[in-house]
Nucleic acid binder design. Structure first.
Lengths: 129, 129
DNA sequence: ATAAATCTTAGAGTATACTCTAATGCAAGA
DNA sequence: TCTTGCATTAGAGTATACTCTAAGATTTAT
């Protein structure tokens, strides 16, 4: 099972437009995409896995530039693993900070809800008298 | 204590540049900012509170347009509280989704770490023999 | 007195990440 | 055969959110 996927299949599977897939390739975020005898892109399982990983990380705020750098490291082989780990560790930290930020925002919103509910019930009281 | 703050003080307190503070005002995200006798902005505590709230929410992904709409609702008075609550509820949902996204990303990154560590220890084994 | 801070409007510039068009051409399916 | 899908390059357009400049004017601080 060494199956490959067309750009349209990958587009549907990842939610990225074909434009974006070609753009990522041009920007060197996606490398080593095979071609069939007519020059059509043939994405491998490995390609798909990388895209999936990339999207997960990108969605959590890693900019394309950093991902490009990471992709370059991957291409350079296993001796770059320590540096890749270090990039991921940094991103991990940012994710944790971001989670803290989100929790704080949830608290702030909860407080607003309470404030609004108090105001609304006061209004109803006044109407009742 | 009805103290007010200059644009420079607010800038330092919020981390927003003066440009951005003026820009937010122009975009109607910030309203009812008083002026002194020379036309200088005098931010009230209320203004500051709103900016703080706005920033917390903005940092968690609410676009300026939505915040502008929210600010408009605030201006229209208490009868818009239900709609404001609904906006905040929607944003709350997005934050929870985002938190889930972040947790998933953390897992993915953890998996990568393990993969890398295995590869590195295999390398060391091979060197050992 | 001089430098630094404030104000205004209008608009240009920057950064990121797409998104699409144009023009051209090959290939496969109904 | 005709439509649809794929390919290319180069560049324009969109959206968001700033960020800064210019030019002129007043005010405040050293």
């Amino acid at each position: 099972m060494n199956r490959s996927y067309s750009i349209d299949e990958i587009s549907r599977m990842t939610g990225l437009s074909k434009y974006t897939l070609r753009y990522y390739e041009k920007e060197n975020l996606l490398k080593n995409i095979a071609r069939d005898e007519h020059g059509y892109r043939k994405y491998s399982e490995k390609n798909l896995e990388w895209i999936t990983f990339l999207l997960k990380v990108k969605k959590t705020g890693m900019p394309i530039n950093s991902l490009k750098y990471y992709a370059d490291l991957m291409e350079r082989g296993d001796e770059t693993i320590p540096e890749r780990k270090s990039i991921l560790r940094d991103h991990q930290k940012r994710i944790l900070q971001e989670k803290a930020e989100l929790s704080q925002a949830l608290e702030v919103i909860e407080r607003k809800f309470k404030m609004y509910d108090e105001r609304l019930s006061k209004q109803r009281e006044e109407e009742g008298h």
